[in-house]
Design a protein around this nucleic acid. Structure first.
Lengths: 340, 340
DNA sequence: TTAAATTCTGGGAGCGCTCTCAATTTTTTA
DNA sequence: TAAAAAATTGAGAGCGCTCCCAGAATTTAA
């Protein structure tokens, strides 16, 4: 089965290359019967236009890139990213875009990947996961290259870029307020990495909630985690001497790790110590005690990012949009609501 | 910053388009000083050749696709696939290939994706995760389209295709033999889906081990799982009435679920019941009792698949290769070795 | 019925590269 | 030093498509 070209189809259908092109691209001004005839030939031959030729002539590739910077790639195996990636991939399928995945693993990768990502004509647009402070570079380069981009999560410098985020401060605030309301007094937190906006924002929400409720926030009750299970485990070990009666973990995965540490220390959950997580990934309901957590619609998040990006691509770059999606506190067993 | 072309670089360097092309593609027959001069211009301008133009002229795109068929996409959020994907992505970076991700989610996707995947000139090659029986179609289409492909995991019909797999039968055999050797008598298994070769092979290994050691294999000790945590949990519930003293789960994730069910039933691990998993993903060491399991080098697996594929792409299609990677039994706490 | 407006169609140029081939320059050999 | 061989270079064609424009066919208006 040799590869057909527009010209071949044209010949078979007794028309010109141009007409076939019109049919394929659903342009007007083709007689109905001609259009049908051409369509039948395309159907019967299984013809597909050559993507590279198309991209070259039309200057767009129907491909978008998902870039996970170095600090993020490390965590790619965390379920949050699988769900995100899945949502993104699904949305791409739906919109007939191809998804190219760029996991930056080293300085070396970084150079190569950024060079190809910023090369106009390869990708129509880029989704960038916001990483830590040092990685503003990527976003800046993309802005300079004038390539449509949407940042997932608020970046440190958010002027000039469209991004999609949840209201982390408010969500964390609600979670901690809930803990206070049901009677907890010494509430600790395991934060995300504090070189990321997510980490900082969730911590801010925690601090704000304590302050508003008149609880003094004790530095020894705040431990920095790294969004991994093990990170949560070790952070909890650091937290234990301060004897918290509740812990707000900035991710479900860390909450699971923290609960493991608590159990090892002989504490019962939620009787001796309560936990609230963040994300509401499936794992939240898989431990022995179901995790109270903040639900963020990760997959839809990805899908939404794709939609915004495609809008940017197809309808031109607009003033940067900042879209904040809602979250929801899901009360289960680990917070001890209704027991105290 | 407008987009440069070969011609622009040529003019700046005082040579012809062809010479610049030679420099970029590291071809011989360019004078040393000319090469240097051109290289400097490229460096200083940050020029990158247009990928589509390149692909069109050279008939290869330096892009490979990773296709996860419908039955697999469902499990994409399972950590196994994150690790696999990560390994693949890393290898692609290393070899200067771009990775396109295709998660088939529906019949509709399937058509679209296969059409674009089989379109010659878009992807240089394809990595396909072997799925269940009904999905041989993909692989067949790819073979017909004569596109270099490597299947990850043994497919049902393995003639004509190169694939990469581990020796599942043998690995499962070893795991179960280990359980027998340390004194367990009533060994149950939670299999993977039995419409997949992985599921079947690991079950076969289990059955063989029992047979060789003269234990009769009881149908009620075999329950089909689906590689999810919840699947493991419910499979274990079905297994409990048969009172196994050990369980071989065909994946770590299912083992975790199964252990949750066992704990809920008041059983102590490994004292009352032993567990062995499969995969040795990080989660194996994250539960309260560390999981004995079979280590398969998932990330390297992905990397290897990429290497084989690239070899196929760059050195021509060869007789199908079947590569089997080794595994290793990792003995931790959950099997109760040394206690009985 | 004819002129004007509209719709449809095909040819040509060009997207930015690679690759072949012939011309030119340089090196080697006698 | 000249001829032969080898290395280097540039021009041209072409990859398969899109898009513009002019010409042909059709429809509408007069």
């Amino acid at each position: 089965m040799t590869n057909l070209t527009l010209e071949d189809i044209a010949k078979k259908a007794g028309v010109s290359r141009s007409t076939v092109s019109r049919v394929i691209n659903q342009q007007p001004n083709v007689k109905k019967d001609v259009r049908e005839r051409v369509r039948r030939v395309i159907e019967s031959t299984g013809f597909r236009p050559h993507p590279a030729a198309r991209a070259l002539a039309s200057q767009h590739s129907s491909t978008i890139g998902l870039v996970l910077p170095q600090s993020v790639s490390f965590f790619f195996t965390d379920p949050y990213y699988s769900h995100l990636t899945k949502g993104i991939a699904q949305a791409c399928n739906q919109h007939d875009y191809t998804l190219a995945l760029f996991l930056v693993e080293s300085e070396d990768d970084e150079k190569k990947i950024f060079a190809s990502v910023t090369r106009k004509g390869f990708l129509d647009g880029v989704l960038v996961q916001s990483g830590h402070h040092g990685e503003q570079q990527v976003i800046g380069d993309l802005v300079d290259a004038n390539i449509p981009q949407v940042v997932i999560g608020r970046p440190f410098r958010s002027d000039n870029v469209s991004y999609l985020d949840i209201d982390n401060i408010n969500a964390a605030f609600n979670a901690v307020t809930h803990l206070i309301r049901i009677g907890h007094k010494r509430i600790g937190t395991i934060t995300g990495p504090l070189h990321s906006t997510v980490g900082l924002d969730r911590k801010t929400g925690y601090v704000n909630a304590l302050r508003e409720r008149g609880l003094h926030s004790d530095e020894s009750l705040i431990v920095e985690g790294d969004f991994t299970e093990n990170g949560g485990y070790y952070a909890m070990k650091k937290l234990l001497p301060s004897k918290p009666d509740a812990v707000f973990a900035a991710s479900d995965v860390m909450a699971i790790g923290a609960m493991r540490a608590a159990r090892e220390a002989g504490l019962r959950i939620p009787d001796d110590i309560a936990f609230v997580g963040f994300d509401d990934l499936p794992i939240a309901t898989l431990s022995d005690v179901q995790l109270t957590t903040i639900r963020q619609p990760v997959a839809q998040f990805g899908a939404k990012a794709v939609e915004i990006l495609i809008d940017l691509i197809e309808n031109g770059i607009k003033p940067p949009q900042h879209i904040i999606l809602g979250t929801e506190l899901v009360i289960r067993d680990s917070c001890g609501a209704g027991r105290k």
